[in-house]
Design a binder for these strands. Sequence first.
DNA 1: TCGTTGACGTA
DNA 2: CGTACGTCAACGAG
Length: 913
Amino acid sequence: MTTSARTDGTSSPGSTAAGTRPRLLLIDGHSMAYRAFFALPDTLVTSSGQVTNAVYGFFSMLTNLLRDEQPTHLAVAFDAGRVTFRTERFAAYKGNRDATPEVFRGQVPLIKEVLEALRVPALQRDGIEADDILATLARQGTEAGMDVLVCSGDRDSLQLVNDDVTVLYPKKGVSELARMTPEAVEAKYKVRPERYPDLAALVGETSDNLPGVPGVGPGVAAKWITQFGDLDSLLERRAEVTGKRGEALREHVDQVRLNRELNALLTDVELPLGVQDLALVGFDREAVHTVSDTLQFGALRDRLLAVDPAASDAEEDVVSAGVALALHQGALADFFAEHAGRVLGLDVSGTGGPGRADAWQVAVATDSADGSASAVVVDLTTVATDDERALASWLADDASSKVVHGAKVAWHLLAARGLDLDLGGVVCDTGLAAYLCYPDQRGYDLADLVVRHLHRELTVQEASAQGSLDLELAEGPPAGTEAAHRAVAVADLAEALAGRLDDRGARGLLDDVEMPLAGVLVRMEDAGIAADTGFLTELERGFADAVADSAAEAYAVIGREVNLGSPKQLQEVLFEQLGMPKTKKIKTGYTTDAASLQDLFTKTQHPFLAHLLAHRDAAKLRTTVEGLLKAVQPDGRIHTTFQQTIAATGRLSSTDPNLQNIPIRTESGRRIRRAFRVGAGNETLLTADYSQIEMRIMAHLSGDEGLIAAFRSGEDLHRYVGSRVFDVEPAEVTAEMRAKVKAMSYGLAYGLSAFGLSQQLGIATGEAQGLMDDYFTRFGGVRDYLAGVVEEARATGYTATILGRRRYLPDLTSDNRQRRQMAERMALNAPIQGSAADIIKLAMLGVQRELDERGLASRLLLQVHDELVVEVAPGEREAAEEVLRTKMGAAYALEVPLDVSVGAGETWHDAGH
DNA sequence: TCGTTGACGTA
DNA sequence: CGTACGTCAACGAG
């Protein structure tokens, strides 16, 4: 979407074509947001719990206004301060209003945040209401020869209406606005707009707690005003008014005069900005993306960006003077020769993951730094031999610099066509670069990054919608145009992100950690891990039987069959049929999670609960096994995909299937690990893991002498800490004491509260608090460190790991307590979890390099956050173990040693320890 | 069919 | 009212 009808539609009511008058749109922020708040459900909420209905509704409305009204100038006014000249004059003014709900108030700063991203001024002044600001600006706008639109839910604003000023008044919700022109006002109220406050003074305004003349409604009031001309004349000649209503009027003259005084809007408020300063200058598109990320705007983000007043011009540029593309088909050798020595963008079209990928098209392009780009595309399904040879040698040549968006995926795609992409030749993976710059983003789609950083659209220009039947148009752009544009975009993006990487101190991480790591991961994914399908099938049968048995027993207890996998139906059984005590409340009722069911079981001893828990357990394991069975590929191995740009802390994640959450805690679950075996022709599986790496990092980062001493002593950590906290000899630390200390030690790295600790340990909050106090007395360095982390992050805006990996946490300064505290916990955890991720990534690089240098055939298969799994080639058992121990142990020099434990076995289960 | 929710597996 | 993930089944809107 880059052209729009409006650019040539001079007849459009919102046309901004030269010669038409500037249009000033003024919005009462509070009243419109408040309308939206009540119009939209409070189920509009982000995953962090922030309700966004008012924000969402407000900007949905604003989007429509920008689209339909095409203003050239825009401002939003907010009420500020509870005391205004009106309350001073009449204490009861608006005195009947309920306190604004907290959920609404919390959203006002968010609205201002988004407005800032749109570069729209938000105006407010203490003691002044938003409508007075609007009235002042409306007057200034009219004087400056502008068409003025006032959007407000306050009827007092109707007094502003004249030939140059139209009020948009919400009819229902915020989606329908009534256009109040002078004619419309007169049609509705039977008075001219300038007389509307006279009418309102007589009728009164319930919402402002201003009583009117009893028995006088808008009809009578309008009649009087028409008859006497205006309110002043009416009041002067009030004796002439007959009947009961005349009496009432005479009795309420003072109130009417007061009403009229209060409902007059100020038109001379002093403001920091004049109307000329309100020109729409275009959005800060990057800020719009950022704020849309945090508020989790989906479609609204796109709708907003689509009405960016600056974008229409920029997009015109794309169409006319954007990327002029010289597109070649084939003749790759010539292309590479012509652009030798230049960094080229590479785009591979294909589908599928490791071992099941396929690619059909490759595009290679120069950047468009000088305004034009050159690209070549080749169809891999029909490629000529000499082209294929040229492509293969360029891809495999690490001296031919290339940039790729998602090089790891590209490697798999090309490998499926027998092409080897040497990742050493990839000088920038723009996906990884973007991830390091914005680790909290949801995704790093190329098209989104192009809009954000290159300010152009990636999708190829559609011919005009109602396009002629012109043959040229019907044929569309040449084959591979889209891919070529992507390749150009990747090349451009690499340059655009370079500065950003340096700003964020992420260049070293990209070059020395993430990009080399992609090469390691690609080999791990390509290798896969051997699976014993026979054993998996056996397991599946066993778990399926357990599911059936426990279900049957559960049904027998309650006398009917329900879907035990449906939390909704379970709630009915537990809390209605069986009348059990209610558990913790969740959105959809009461939780039926395992902890709560266990709790209920200790309280009620009801056998249904035992069967239900057994059913849950078996069902979970069964589906896990089923998933694994489906993932076994023809080579008898499971090839997971390691996601390198998902976890905001820097961890990897694993998908299709997830091999980082294979059960280990219970024996029945752990059996699944027996299905992961050493591959045929290999000697054994080796697992190596860091013991207590997060606590070691805590010791290192905090510099706490007690904790450092604990690790250097070689004593069991939790026993040592327990002896200090409980003031006993290490030998006297009981299992219970050790468990408490262990839970607390780990909890601290997550921002655990005394309440949370008490819940986990099943002790009183007071006792948990005492435990934490004792802990901090003995390990003061830890307390100081944790406090310092949050403080520093609040000041700098981000946390950092030992390698300088940053996580930006803008919510640390949020006014919203829930969001702020969430951000504080993230700030506590990110340096610890992230540093652990850094260390194991360095270890993986070290291990891979050493295996290669020693010419060993053993290979890395899996990474599970603090553990590496290696498949050992025949005769390499000792060498592989030594490589793991030394390279993992020396990955990074902490103040405390990195302890590595290694195990070997035929299966993952047996290699575990 | 799609997106969301609750639940639960791992570190 | 403890961080970071991915997957599944159920459910309700489309």
